[in-house]
Amino acid sequence: MLGTGLLQGLAVTARNFLGSFYDRRRFVTTQYPEQRTALPEAYRNFPFLVCESADDPMGTLRCVACQICEKECPPQCIYIEKSKDKKPDANGKPQIYPAVFDIDTAVCMSCQICVEVCPFDAIKMDQVFELAATDRFGALLMDRHALAKPNSYFQSIHPTEAGEVDSRLLAARLAAEEKARTAAAAKAAPKPAAPKPPAAPSAEAPKPSPPLA
């Protein structure tokens, strides 16, 4: 009958309208900025540089200015200048550091490719999105001071990813220490001894027991 489709449609809208007075699932609006929805852990906005300590961000940047991210960034919004001198990194090894590290966040498209290609876990995605500025070239062109954030901050925004990164870095550090120790031991060993194979750590490992006969 003509008109039934209309009445049926009106019934749907009426149900939604009345339902919104008592069904919480029908409240789809969040009263930003008073209320905020929780951001998912994977949320990404612009990159930041990870440093080890909040007290000395410039001294403990993980970035070694290898410029891979600068080369891979699709819109070319990263600009890096290498330092002339070297600073010790977290493992005590002297490394080059970025004398200039700029990201133009007005050009950055939040693609996360810099994060994926960085071999040193030095650049990660931030979750700060309230970045409105009145000056195109001031606050939006972020230099390394604005970009550096401590590892603890990374832990707080991406706990899963940061946990993985930390355990990987720890394993790498332990392996490096182990290698340094065995290298030192090899040096200290008397000359006539047979040259130790490079796979020294296995010598210290307990010998596998022979299979039970």
Binding site: G5, L6, Q8, A11, V12
Partner: peptide
């Protein structure tokens, strides 16, 4: 629900 609102709606048709 969406179809109840629209598919049989005379104006849409």
């Amino acid at each position: 629900e969406y179809e109840a609102l629209l598919t049989g709606n005379e104006i849409l048709m």
